[in-house]
Design a protein around this nucleic acid. Structure first.
Lengths: 175, 175
DNA sequence: CATGAAAAGAACTCCTT
DNA sequence: AAGGAGTTCTTTTCATG
């Protein structure tokens, strides 16, 4: 992971369809070298995959909500998570420290689907309570994080010396 | 938005680098036709962009947290959001109904960065309190939602008749 | 690990139905 | 709105420094 790799990751996180030819121009290498590097980033799991980002509202998913889930003591956490996994509407699923045991992010067409979903979640063995937070406005989501040089592949981190500079960001689909 | 368009969106949300040739094979059209359709999906804002997905841990972002933010009454909500927008670490930002006014998702290298971030957020005028939930395990995130036929472009929704079938999903980067 | 050249394939444009 | 043909560009492979 050198500066060029980081640059490639940043470019691809901003635009996942950037061609090798274009990447090559931006980092000052030839397309085959870039292809080699990107393949290695994929093999080593730095780049996990590529996605098109769809506008939820345009595909009929008008309600976004975060649901905190409290669980009964003495339950297998992993088992509960595997139940969540069967539910398509759960876009993200975290086991968390804090008020509840799980925090999930869900997307549904409308409020009645949310009610339906909450009933399904509440019926899962081990789920004790749910606390739902509904998004009124999505200012942005999925903004790519810039890979900085001090953030290295594993462990071998240098001490922090300076506060790193911030990069300005705009609305909508952030580049 | 017909069945073919929905299929294209689903394929591209699962793998954003799928070529037009491959898309054409999967939907039974020729590459130029598919290119036409995808261009239209992009123009009409159904597909907002394309991204590579990087493994946060592999790029040094070891801490994921959700922060609920309570605000002082009599404050301009939009102004507070524009302050949040300047903070790179905020990956997503929602104005919400529920316990707090905002819910944000943040990623930082480690706990000391989280403390630093919480101090910066707490210093924003109008921010009254923060409640932080730290992710211990990310079971999955950003799983693409399948576009179903009942979810149409705008408003002209048919009544719900049947509960739609669910599609099985696996760990890691969900296809 | 990068380069350059060559072959294969894909993307893009235009034109026809 | 889709298919076919031709051009351009990119991807991919391989040999070389």
């Amino acid at each position: 992971m050198d500066d060029i790799d980081r640059k490639l990751v940043n470019i691809l996180c901003a635009d996942g369809r950037t061609s090798y030819a274009e990447l090559a121009r931006q980092v000052g290498l030839t397309p085959p070298s870039v292809q080699d590097r990107v393949a290695k980033l994929e093999r080593t799991g730095v780049i996990v995959g590529y996605r098109a980002v769809a506008d939820p509202a345009k595909i009929g998913l008008n309600v976004t909500a975060a649901i905190g889930i409290g669980t009964q003591s003495g339950r297998e956490y992993a088992q509960i998570a595997s139940e969540f996994e069967k539910i398509d509407e759960i876009e993200s699923c975290y086991f968390v420290a804090g008020r509840e045991s799980y925090l999930i992010k869900v997307r549904v067409p409308d409020m009645s689907d949310l009610q339906d979903l909450l009933e399904r979640i509440g019926a899962i063995p081990g789920v004790a309570e749910t606390r739902t937070t509904i998004a009124i406005t999505t200012h942005w989501e999925g903004r790519p994080q810039e890979v900085k040089d001090r953030e290295l592949t594993h462990g071998n981190r240098r001490p922090k010396l300076i506060r790193r500079s911030r990069m300005g960001q705009l609305g909508g689909f952030h580049r």
